[in-house]
Design a binder for these strands. Structure first.
Length: 222
DNA sequence: GACCAGGCACATC
DNA sequence: GATGTGCATGGT
């Protein structure tokens, strides 16, 4: 399995090169992006982030002190904006209550404990929590998303029914806990997913065309 | 006009 | 525990 996962990574890297994830000038900007991008294309998130920057509000305090209606209007382009305004404020409240609003203090928490804490925040699910851990805080945690699952199941490496944690464990059990590897790997999977592994298969230019399989059944329910 | 996007919470069975 | 639905804008 280790060999297979590394083979996939190398093929993708050779085909597409570094993806330079995650765009963001500060860890907090990445965290905000992780919440805003929920079920939303990144292009629309960028507009929302630009507006927050224009208003000089892209800080923990800046968002926390904003009126909900004003915050919602600034992030409107990212869709489900009333819900996301709530989520951002719940999140900044969490940052203040738990870390005094200091990202540096947050960073000192071990990944395991931090993940559990993040999952306890309303509006933060597994993918958002892991994106924050990996892309904002540099913790070696593998991020799983819809593309990851679609690609792996389509290539017979996992079951369609495999849970989030099962897919995550597959990567983390078989690869070194390397933040930069996990960063690049997930970014490459998303890039591949957008290009060729869509819901309607059109894998004629897929760099994984002839990978060795023989690992079917991972994540199958007993 | 339908469908999708770097999900999540909640209701219901 | 699985499945369905609301959230909502902007691009294709």
């Amino acid at each position: 399995m280790r060999r297979l996962l590394i083979d996939i990574y190398e093929r993708l890297y050779r085909a597409y090169g570094p993806r330079h994830w995650w765009p963001g000038e500060t860890p907090f900007e990445v965290m905000v992006g992780a919440i805003l991008t929920q079920n939303t294309s990144w292009i629309n998130v960028e507009k929302a982030i630009r507006r927050l920057k224009e208003e000089r509000r892209l800080t923990v305090t800046g968002i926390h002190q904003l009126k909900k209606s004003k915050l919602a209007s600034l992030i409107r382009s990212s869709g489900t904006y009333r819900i996301k305004a709530d989520r951002l404020r719940v999140f900044t409240t969490f940052l203040f209550e738990t870390y005094g609003g200091k990202i540096s203090r947050m960073k000192k928490d071990p990944a395991r404990a931090l993940r559990d804490r993040l999952l306890g925040v309303k509006g933060i699910g597994p993918e958002t929590a892991d994106s924050i851990l990996l892309y904002a805080l540099g913790k070696p945690v593998f991020v799983v998303d819809a593309y990851t699952r679609r690609i792996l199941s389509r290539h017979g490496i996992i079951s369609e029914k495999a849970s989030y944690e099962e897919v995550q464990q597959l990567f983390m059990d078989h690869l070194p806990a390397d933040e930069r590897l996990f960063n690049e790997y997930h970014a490459l999977l998303v890039y591949l997913g957008k290009r060729v592994c869509q819901k309607t298969p059109k894998c004629d230019i897929c760099p994984l065309e002839s990978i060795g399989h023989g690992a079917e059944g991972i994540g199958k329910r007993a």
